[in-house]
Amino acid sequence: MMNMTPPDFLARIETWPQPAQTQFVKLRQIVHDVATSAEIGPLDESLKWGQPSWRPKRARVGSTLRVDWSPSTPDRLLAFVDCKTNLAAQMDTRFPGQFHNDGRRALGFDLDKPLDEDAVWQLVHLTLTYHRAKRAA
């Protein structure tokens, strides 16, 4: 289900240190696996605010998930959800203490630990199906 990736998307990741790139590759695969298994449809894979991001191409299915690495937090890869959602709070409830979670929009993954694929899967699923799940509730 991976679509053509914009060159600037890949160029951005190449500027990151190797541990961040390695975590990102795993996270990106989970994003595309979730999109397939949850029948989300094609994803828009692009840079938003200079950060790699994914969003379902179909309207009103899910929210945007962005990921970034920054020299200001060099030991973490950060995932960002829409601050107008309760997604970060949901992840804190489901996985207390698992992430560096600001409870609003940012969740940090330590680069010196294995990526918790179950937690990331749930974060991605909750985010990419956010609007669809709200309509079903």
Rank of each mutant, 00 (worst) to 15 (best):
R76K: 13
I30H: 00
A89H: 14
R28A: 06
D118N: 10
N3Y: 13
G41Y: 04
S72Q: 14
H32K: 13
L78Q: 09
A79F: 14
T129M: 05
I30M: 02
R132I: 08
L123C: 10
T64P: 05
F9D: 07
K113R: 15
D112R: 15
Q98I: 08
L115G: 08
Q21N: 04
L78S: 06
Q29R: 15
A88F: 10
V124Y: 04
S72I: 08
D75N: 15
V25N: 13
K26S: 03
K84T: 10
A119L: 03
K84R: 14
T22G: 03
L115V: 11
D118A: 12
D110A: 11
R76D: 04
K113Q: 15
M4G: 11
P56G: 04
R105I: 02
Q90E: 04
F80S: 00
A79M: 14
E39N: 10
R105G: 01
T129H: 03
Q23W: 00
P71I: 08
R55E: 02
Q98P: 07
D8T: 05
L123R: 10
L10R: 14
A133N: 13
L115I: 05
N3H: 14
A38N: 05
D112G: 12
D44W: 09
Q21A: 00
I30T: 10
S72R: 13
S37T: 13
T73S: 12
D82T: 03
S53M: 12
T129E: 05
D75L: 09
F24R: 12
R28D: 02
K26I: 13
A20G: 01
G103L: 09
A20M: 07
E117H: 04
N101E: 05
R58Q: 12
K134W: 00
P19S: 09
G41R: 06
T64E: 03
M1I: 11
V61W: 07
S37A: 14
L111G: 12
E14H: 09
L128C: 06
R58L: 13
I30K: 01
E39M: 03
A106R: 04
T73Y: 08
R132F: 05
W121L: 07
V67C: 12
W16R: 00
S53A: 14
S53F: 02
Q51V: 00
F9L: 11
G103Q: 08
F109S: 06
P74G: 08
P19K: 11
Q23E: 03
H131L: 08
T93R: 12
R132N: 02
N101T: 02
P17H: 12
L128A: 06
G41L: 06
D112Q: 15
G50L: 02
A133L: 14
W49D: 07
F80Q: 00
Q51Y: 01
D92F: 09
M4D: 14
P17L: 05
Q90Y: 08
I13M: 08
D44G: 09
E117C: 02
A88T: 07
K57D: 01
D8R: 08
W54F: 10
D68V: 15
A106Q: 13
